[in-house]
Computed example of a mutant assay.
Amino acid sequence: MTAPALVSVRGLRVAYGDGPLVLDGVDLDLHTGEMVALLGSSGSGKSTLMRSLTGFAPISGGSVHVVGHDMTNLPRRRLRTVRASVGQVFQQFNLVGRLSVLTNVLTGALHDAGPINLAGGFSSAHRRRAMELLDRVGIAHKATDQARSLSGGQQQRVAIARALMQRPRIVLADEPVASLDPRMSHAVLGLLREIAHDDGIPVLVSLHVLALALEHSDRVVGLRHGQVLVSAPTAQLDAATLNVLYDHENDNEEATRVDDHA
Results as ranks from 00 to 15, higher is better:
residue 1 M to L: 10
residue 4 P to E: 09
residue 4 P to V: 08
residue 7 V to G: 15
residue 8 S to A: 15
residue 10 R to Q: 13
residue 10 R to M: 02
residue 11 G to F: 04
residue 11 G to K: 14
residue 13 R to G: 14
residue 16 Y to M: 06
residue 17 G to T: 04
residue 28 L to C: 07
residue 30 L to H: 08
residue 31 H to V: 12
residue 34 E to N: 08
residue 39 L to N: 08
residue 50 M to D: 01
residue 54 T to F: 08
residue 55 G to P: 09
residue 56 F to I: 10
residue 59 I to R: 08
residue 60 S to G: 15
residue 61 G to H: 10
residue 67 V to E: 12
residue 67 V to T: 14
residue 69 H to T: 07
residue 69 H to I: 02
residue 70 D to L: 02
residue 71 M to D: 02
residue 71 M to A: 07
residue 74 L to I: 12
residue 74 L to M: 00
residue 78 R to D: 15
residue 79 L to N: 08
residue 81 T to E: 14
residue 81 T to K: 12
residue 82 V to E: 00
residue 84 A to S: 14
residue 86 V to C: 06
residue 87 G to H: 09
residue 88 Q to P: 01
residue 93 F to A: 02
residue 93 F to W: 09
residue 98 R to W: 14
residue 101 V to F: 03
residue 102 L to Q: 11
residue 103 T to D: 14
residue 105 V to I: 03
residue 105 V to K: 01
residue 106 L to Y: 03
residue 106 L to P: 04
residue 108 G to Q: 07
residue 109 A to K: 12
residue 109 A to W: 09
residue 110 L to I: 03
residue 110 L to R: 10
residue 112 D to W: 08
residue 119 A to I: 14
residue 120 G to Y: 14
residue 121 G to Y: 13
residue 121 G to Q: 13
residue 128 R to V: 11
residue 128 R to L: 10
residue 128 R to T: 15
residue 131 M to I: 10
residue 132 E to T: 11
residue 132 E to P: 00
residue 134 L to E: 07
residue 135 D to S: 14
residue 136 R to V: 03
residue 137 V to G: 11
residue 141 H to D: 13
residue 144 T to H: 15
residue 144 T to D: 15
residue 145 D to M: 11
residue 148 R to A: 13
residue 148 R to Q: 13
residue 154 Q to R: 10
residue 155 Q to T: 01
residue 156 Q to N: 05
residue 157 R to H: 04
residue 158 V to S: 05
residue 159 A to R: 09
residue 160 I to K: 11
residue 161 A to F: 03
residue 161 A to D: 01
residue 166 Q to V: 02
residue 167 R to P: 00
residue 167 R to T: 08
residue 167 R to N: 12
residue 173 A to V: 02
residue 173 A to E: 00
residue 175 E to A: 05
residue 178 A to L: 02
residue 180 L to I: 01
residue 194 E to N: 09
residue 202 P to I: 00
residue 202 P to V: 00
residue 203 V to F: 03
residue 208 H to A: 06
residue 208 H to P: 00
residue 208 H to E: 03
residue 210 L to R: 07
residue 222 G to Q: 07
residue 222 G to N: 07
residue 222 G to H: 04
residue 223 L to V: 12
residue 224 R to T: 00
residue 224 R to Y: 09
residue 225 H to P: 01
residue 227 Q to V: 15
residue 228 V to G: 05
residue 231 S to M: 05
residue 233 P to V: 00
residue 233 P to G: 10
residue 235 A to V: 06
residue 238 D to K: 11
residue 238 D to W: 07
residue 242 L to C: 10
residue 243 N to G: 03
residue 243 N to C: 10
residue 247 D to Y: 01
residue 247 D to Q: 12
residue 248 H to Y: 07
residue 250 N to A: 13
residue 252 N to C: 01
residue 255 A to T: 07
residue 257 R to A: 13
residue 261 H to K: 03
